[in-house]
């Protein structure tokens, strides 16, 4: 699925890295706990989260993720947007809740991966 399609499906606002919207991604995960993302996620390119602080961007950077979707109308500040832009990570913001946003992406073919062991 293209990141641009994620933006359309979630009626999301694009906050940075428009040039990456054509990038294909193959899996996603949803979590507000970055420790769990660092522990269990493997090869997932999209992070959906309701958590808003710079560690979300750094966690995605460490995991080589390509896109972060902020749910529940959460908005990152300019410092976070600058960090993401520096790493080429697309930031999207949607009004949807985490469960709904994950469900829409999953039912449109963007599945999760097995838990890494």
């Amino acid at each position: 699925m293209k990141i641009g399609t994620i933006q359309e499906l979630l009626h999301a606002e694009l906050l940075c890295c428009e040039e990456e919207l054509n990038r294909e991604v193959f899996s996603a995960c949803g979590s507000d706990m970055m420790s769990d993302v660092l522990a269990y996620v493997k090869d997932q390119a999209v992070l959906l989260t309701g958590l808003v602080n710079p560690q979300v961007i750094r966690t995605a950077e460490m995991m080589d993720m390509k896109c972060i979707v902020f749910v529940r109308s959460k908005r990152p500040n300019s410092e976070m947007i600058a960090l993401a832009r520096d790493s080429g990570i697309v930031l999207l913001a949607t009004e949807m809740r985490l469960y709904e946003a994950c469900g829409i992406l999953y039912s449109n073919g963007l599945v999760g991966n097995k838990v890494a062991t």
Partner: peptide, 15 residues
């Protein structure tokens, strides 16, 4: 509340 402190840090570092 900042997304850390789940007791996964040291186990992750070992992993």
């Amino acid at each position: 509340s900042l997304g850390f402190g789940a007791g996964m840090g040291l186990p992750n570092m070992k992993r």
